[in-house]
């Protein structure tokens, strides 16, 4: 474990903050760190850029993080896990994010946007949850962008005639829908999904993050190829 200092905290929407550190965490898009919030718990969080994490307050530790400020110090283990793979030059890139699943995909977007044609889609409940200005927005209540979920919007926009690569992170039901849609079109090998199973060790020994097919999300993932997972 080593310590990092907060350089800046940006409020992204009501219960989401981006915490920027004073140094690069030296990870790749899709990798995560185990962040030790002293006095609270140690939790897994994806890198949302080389030096930031983007956190949604859902429980004790993540809510404490919403109040973090410049100068705060956190313990870090990692980055850990298998990152997203890079697309081939002739592939059109789609990012399909649900809610806070945008965090790892933002890092990927920033990495790819200058060299690839990237279409980012962000599914949220309502317009108050908009975090970044670049993605196409889908809202459940229709208060911004497309009315519907991220997968519906993706299926509407996507050009399945062209070579494509689809990266996704978000709630399980959303991932499952996307997985089914890609499977139906025989395109599972173009899909990469980042999973968020409950974690303890983060290094592949405790077994708490293991999937039904025996893969460790922390070590063999969190990013999995569509063809490698069985939902």
């Amino acid at each position: 474990m080593y310590c990092v200092k907060v350089a800046e905290v940006n409020k992204m929407c009501r219960d989401v903050v981006e915490i920027v550190f004073d140094r690069d965490l030296r990870g790749y898009p899709g990798q995560f760190v185990m962040l030790n919030v002293f006095g609270y718990e140690e939790i897994p969080l994806s890198l949302s850029s080389p030096k930031s994490l983007t956190v949604k307050g859902v429980g004790k530790t993540t809510k404490a993080l919403l109040n973090s400020k410049k100068g705060d110090v956190f313990g870090v283990r990692g980055p850990f896990g298998r990152p997203f793979s890079l697309p081939s030059v002739d592939e059109k890139v789609y990012l399909v994010a649900g809610g806070i699943g945008i965090a790892p995909l933002n890092y990927l977007y920033q990495t790819l946007k200058d060299e690839f044609e990237v279409i980012a889609i962000h599914g949220i409940r309502c317009k108050d949850e908009i975090m970044y200005d670049y993605p196409e927005i889908a809202t459940d209540d229709g208060s911004a962008g497309f009315k519907g979920n991220a997968v519906e919007l993706f299926l509407r926009i996507a050009d399945f005639e062209e070579k494509m690569r689809v990266y996704s992170c978000g709630p399980k039901p959303m991932l499952l829908n996307l997985y089914k849609a890609m499977k139906k079109r025989n395109l599972l090998d173009c899909l990469e999904i980042s999973l968020e199973n409950y974690m303890k060790c983060g290094i592949g020994i405790c077994g708490s993050c293991v999937t039904e097919c025996g893969k460790r999300v922390c070590k063999d993932g969190p990013v999995f190829k569509g063809i490698d997972i069985i939902f």
Binding site: M1, E41, K200, C201, I205, C206
Partner: peptide, 17 residues
């Protein structure tokens, strides 16, 4: 126990799961 329950360090691991 609550996290952190595992710490990996050089050549060893300390755990209190």
């Amino acid at each position: 126990y609550k996290n952190p329950v595992v710490l990996n360090q050089e050549c060893s691991i300390v755990n209190a799961v």
